[in-house]
């Protein structure tokens, strides 16, 4: 069975910006290991001659022309914002 360390879970949680309780950490550690073990099964297949696949749709070259279309108005664009001022979204300060 694939090994998932506690640090792996913490790392994935950081990347996803989720906070985990101690219980969740343990729960996900075993669940993630289970998921990986399940995916491991794929290794039983030989993929020697298979081309890597980037799309399942069988389509290619779908384009749109460079023609402008009306945008949403600012009010509509900002309508779902948890926080905003007159013309912008507002987010916790990002300062480097």
């Amino acid at each position: 069975m694939a090994k998932i360390s506690r640090d792996d879970v913490l790392h994935v949680a950081l990347l996803s910006r989720v906070e985990l309780t101690e219980e969740e950490l343990e729960l996900f550690q075993s669940q993630l290991a289970g998921i990986l073990a399940y995916v491991e099964k794929l290794k039983e297949l030989s993929t020697e001659d298979a081309e890597p696949m980037t799309s399942v749709m069988g389509l290619h070259d779908v384009f749109r022309e460079d023609e402008p279309r009306a945008s949403l108005g600012r009010e509509e664009a900002l309508a779902n914002a948890p926080d905003r001022d007159e013309d912008s979204f507002r987010v916790p300060a990002v300062v480097e």
Binding site: R69, A70, S71, R74
Partner: peptide, 20 residues
């Protein structure tokens, strides 16, 4: 004239959040 995945204008200097 437009963005990479939609028809919003890329013109510079528009009021904030008016081209989305």
């Amino acid at each position: 004239r437009t963005k990479l995945f939609c028809g919003c204008s890329t013109a510079f200097g528009a009021p904030p959040n008016s081209q989305t």
